[in-house]
Design a protein around this nucleic acid. Structure first.
Length: 359
DNA sequence: AAACCGGGGCA
DNA sequence: TGCCCAGGTTT
């Protein structure tokens, strides 16, 4: 489809949108800057994550790392510890790598064009477009979740938006609608429209600056678009989590930095099948490591990830000999420090049980 | 319980 | 290119 086939003129949309944005746009911490470092940081944090969750992290990051040089100069572990709780921990790894790339390959300056920006790990087509548009006012399109939903409705797209066909079409529309002027404001504005007006459920069409040209509204489909994709079932995985306690300290380990939940701390675990008996497995472990002490069940938690559900049975094991377990990636922490370390979400639930439990 | 969300990695 | 993986929030 070329632009002559659009159901409305792109400028009709962008003019209405910009006027609305001037009146009603949000004032977010990363909006009052054109510093590409700050814009990049906010965009990476906002991937897969809501604005409200990001704000505190964003402020804390900037206090610690006010420039790309300071971020590049720190250790990956430090970055991961600050990221704990935000999820998608590979973003923290990519953030650190990209900071070093900017310093070393781009002499401390973020490139302005989408192609160069996309060379940075963690920066795909949409994030590159956002940085280019927001920091440099270049005519670059984005397609984040908000924009995707807005376009699905504006054009009454009748297929699930994540299909590869739909994705192509949506990118084309996004590029066609992006104006040559005021790209910074336009880009902020269309994201705000999705976040404030063209919301997933019960969109506020009566307040929408594009209500006159919206094809979904015209067809009374605004409620039912975008179409949902097929949802799939996820398996359950089982583990035992071991709260290994010696005097006032607990044994924690840091997960492999490149893997699932990379760099997060956790209690040591044993993976299980649905059929195995956790108590038996636990006895086996205790005898394997020649541990003497008392094991008591603390409780069970469930944690849902996107592709599996985790069931974890937590045991408190008070030991009086621990030489085998104090090596490698493992580290002993006093109980009162556990709330401050970068535990992943599932094991935070287990820690909460331990803390409720009292002494 | 289910939907949502940008990008990386691999076949 | 198409598919799988990824984590916490919202509804």
């Amino acid at each position: 489809m070329n632009s002559t086939e659009l159901p409305f003129r792109p400028t009709d949309f962008s003019q209405q949108l910009l006027a609305w944005y001037g009146q009603s746009g949000r004032n977010l911490p990363w909006r009052n800057t054109r510093d590409p470092y700050r814009i990049w940081l906010s965009e990476i944090m906002l991937q897969q994550t809501t604005v409200s969750a990001v704000i505190d992290y964003y402020q804390r990051f900037l206090e610690k790392f006010p420039t790309v040089e300071t971020l590049a100069a720190t250790s990956l572990e430090h970055v991961i510890d600050l990221w704990a709780g935000l999820g998608y921990y590979s973003r923290a790894r990519n953030l650190h790598t990209a900071a070093k790339m900017v310093v070393e390959q781009f002499h401390g300056r973020f490139p302005e064009d989408v192609e160069s920006l996309q060379q940075l790990p963690g920066v795909g087509r949409s994030t590159a477009g956002a940085i280019s548009a927001l920091a440099f006012d270049q005519r670059a399109a984005i397609l984040d979740g908000n924009v995707r939903r807005v376009l699905c409705r504006l054009f009454a797209l009748q297929e699930p938006p994540r299909s590869s066909q739909a994705e192509k079409q949506l990118w084309r529309w996004s590029e066609q609608l992006t104006p040559a002027e005021q790209v910074h404001d336009y880009t902020q504005a269309i994201m705000d429209l999705g976040a404030m007006i063209c919301v997933p459920r019960n969109p506020l069409c009566h307040q929408c600056p594009a209500v006159g040209i919206c094809q979904a509204h015209k067809l009374e489909l605004a409620q039912s678009l975008p179409l949902k994709g097929a949802s799939k079932k996820i398996p359950t995985r089982y583990e035992i989590a071991l709260l290994i306690n010696h005097q006032d300290r607990y044994l924690l380990r840091r997960r492999i930095i490149t893997g699932f939940l990379g760099g997060m701390w956790e209690f040591p675990t044993l993976s299980m099948t649905a059929e195995e008996d956790p108590e038996k497995k636990l006895q086996l472990l205790l005898s394997d490591f020649a541990l003497t002490g008392a094991a008591t069940k603390l409780g069970s938690i469930e944690h849902v990830y996107s592709h599996f559900r985790l069931h974890s049975d937590a045991y408190h094991i008070k030991i009086d000999n621990f030489s085998h377990l104090s090596e490698g990636e493992n580290c002993w922490f006093p109980l009162h420090e556990l709330p401050t370390i970068a535990l992943h979400g599932a094991h935070k639930k287990i820690l909460a049980k331990r803390l409720q439990h009292g002494d």
